[in-house]
Design a protein around this nucleic acid. Structure first.
Length: 599
DNA sequence: CCCCCCCC
């Protein structure tokens, strides 16, 4: 049985750097805070004492989730840091560890360890003569090099200008809104362009950066004066000391970073370049090969690298929501997987992009959309790197110049009406609920095969303005004229417009949807004007249209978005298109689903 | 304090 490192915990807490201490995990606990990343807290033993102020760094969560760390297992701690919270509690964050022996093999507590209290364990509080601990000294710097135990040998981590005496560097993972006397040392891994906003609460400018250190990452935003102060100073890949930023709870909806908090960079915030040679992790990419894009969920944020095979001219589109004109540029990028995908750049990124000579493009944090099978969009928060000096990029360059240039590339299948193959984002209604579709900041599009089980006759149609593209409800003046407030005119005629509520069912659940004109006409099998006429003049015929329209099945393309309605949020699902089931196509989808079961 | 990231 493994020998535990007796005395190691006390040493760790006191700011020493025991070499790869061997500890036993006595207990584990999952800490779940509302909708955010799970954290794991451990009670560990070194055979002499047990200590429960121990956290697993987020990047080790997999050890818990894959059940590698279990009760009574023996671990070797390769890297850790120790930090003071709430004034005098010492907390150990395990940054890297190996499991030496599983708890199921060990089966017992080793030794007779006694609990060690967290409070006052820090020598800084007991021995005021001693300088504050510098957690950065406590890294065991990885590999087999033992970290220096003698503090005198170690240069204080923070010897930046203008900050004498404040040598403590805090891990990003320890930042909270409840403690503002911190200072981090971190690398900028992403930086956005400067963006302006204007809404009911005001207007201004902002940009975002991501900071990364050994313990984790955090997103920071600078507003207005903060933009002037920090935009040029902060450069991607460089390392900075940051203090006096404001922390607040991160809105997870808008960030894929592993941190519950975000930082605001105010005019009071202090940022200094770190000129020392420190070993911090750099931007890491997790490139998804282009032929594997379909394995990822629509709207996932992913990293991609490819050769720009086609660079289209810039063009403009008008945003559906904003009604603003936006510049964009479509690229087609390819990689060794032999598949091509569309990548759209927006705004400045689009204007400035030069695709001459088939450059290599790497994008960190691109959004994967399901348009046209699969396509990519570079967000403001994405980092776009042209011809990066990396192994992947050089390999791609060599491959493309030698072979790729003459290859034919497969592309993702179109997602147009009637198409149902690999590109379609098929969902059952239970998927819609369990996957929380429509809960993002953006509507989710999906396709379902379903049966109409109920159609609401009441309020299913209204008289609308006869002007083309004006679908505003008109007011019956009672004199044969209909008034449109939007056009500010009276008309002797009107059109019928439909807003049909339908309840659909598939084999998993049911779903209320709203159908507008075209899809409502499809479901009912009559034109809106005919139906309006029936409603006015032939009610039995009107009723019969509804009776014969139920229990028919279609392939529905639906758009889902949570909306507030009477202070209540509900999922609003709108029918974009309803089409008769193409059974050949639908069967292909089913066969793919069966194949995916792997049975 | 943003949180839009669009369009086909």
């Amino acid at each position: 049985m493994a020998q535990l490192s007796g005395g190691a915990i006390q040493a760790m807490i006191q700011g020493e750097s025991p070499d790869h201490p061997i500890l036993q995990v006595i207990n584990t606990r999952k800490i779940t805070s509302n909708g955010s990343q799970d954290r794991y807290r451990l009670m560990v033993s070194d055979g002499t004492v047990t200590y429960s102020q121990v956290m697993l760094a987020l990047q080790l969560n997999n050890l818990m989730e894959e059940d590698k760390i279990d009760q009574l297992c023996i671990i070797k701690v390769n890297k850790f840091m120790c930090n003071t919270i709430q004034g005098n509690k010492r907390i150990i964050i395990i940054l890297d560890a190996d499991v030496l022996q599983r708890g199921s093999e060990v089966q017992q507590r080793i030794g007779n360890p006694q609990p060690l209290r967290a409070e006052g364990a820090a020598p800084a509080n007991r021995a005021p003569a001693r300088p504050p601990l510098n957690p950065a000294r406590q890294f065991s710097p990885g590999g087999n090099r033992p970290a220096p135990v003698n503090n005198a040998n170690v240069k204080p981590a923070a010897s930046g200008p203008g900050t004498p005496g404040s040598s403590r560097v805090h891990p990003i993972a320890s930042l909270t809104p409840y403690q503002n006397r911190w200072r981090i040392r971190a690398r900028v891994t992403q930086k956005s362009n400067i963006r302006t906003w204007s809404n009911s609460r005001g207007e201004g400018r902002l940009f975002n950066v991501n900071f990364l250190d050994e313990s984790g990452e955090i997103r920071a935003t600078a507003f207005n004066e903060g933009v002037d102060k920090f935009y040029d100073l902060l450069e991607v890949n460089k390392i900075y000391y940051v203090s006096k930023g404001t922390l607040k709870t991160a809105n997870k909806q808008y960030s894929n970073l592993k941190n519950d908090y975000e930082m605001s960079l105010n005019p009071e915030t202090v940022i200094e370049p770190c000129n020392e040679n420190v070993d911090l992790p750099s931007m890491t990419f997790d490139f998804v090969p282009i032929n594997e894009m379909e394995k990822h969920q629509a709207n996932a944020i992913i990293d991609v690298i490819g050769v720009v095979k086609v660079c289209n001219d810039i063009s403009t589109v008008v945003g559906r929501q904003s009604q603003k004109e936006i510049t964009k540029r479509d690229l087609q990028i390819v990689d060794q997987s032999g598949v091509a995908i569309n990548l759209t750049l927006w705004g400045d990124d689009a204007v400035k992009f030069n695709g001459d000579g088939n450059p290599i493009i790497a994008v960190k944090g691109a959004r994967l959309s399901d348009f046209g099978g699969r396509s990519l969009s570079a967000l403001a928060s994405s980092q776009i790197i042209l011809n990066p000096d990396t192994r992947e990029a050089h390999m791609l360059r060599g491959w493309y110049d030698r072979d790729g240039v003459n290859m034919d590339f497969a592309s993702f299948r179109s997602d147009g009406p009637g198409a149902g193959g690999g590109g379609t984002n098929w969902k059952t209604f239970s998927d819609v609920k369990t996957e929380g579709l429509g809960h993002g900041d953006k509507a989710d599009y999906f396709t379902s095969k379903a049966t109409v089980i109920f159609l609401k006759k009441d309020n299913c149609m209204y008289r609308s303005c006869p002007t083309d593209n004006c679908n505003k409800k008109v007011i019956d003046q009672g004199n044969g004229l209909y008034r449109c407030e939007k056009c500010n005119r009276e008309f002797p005629s009107h059109k019928w417009r439909m807003i049909l509520s339908a309840n659909l069912a598939d084999h998993t659940d049911n779903q209320w949807i709203t159908c507008f004109q075209e899809s409502a006409e499809t479901l009912l099998g009559v034109k809106a004007d005919e139906l309006g006429d029936m409603r006015e003049n032939n009610e039995p015929a009107f009723d019969q249209v509804f009776q014969q329209a139920v229990f028919k099945q279609y392939v529905f393309k639906l758009r889902a978005k949570v909306e507030m309605y009477n202070e209540e949020s509900r999922l609003k699902t709108v029918c974009v298109n309803a089409a008769p089931v193409d059974f050949i196509d639908y069967s292909k989808h089913l066969l793919e689903q069966i194949a995916a079961l792997g049975i």
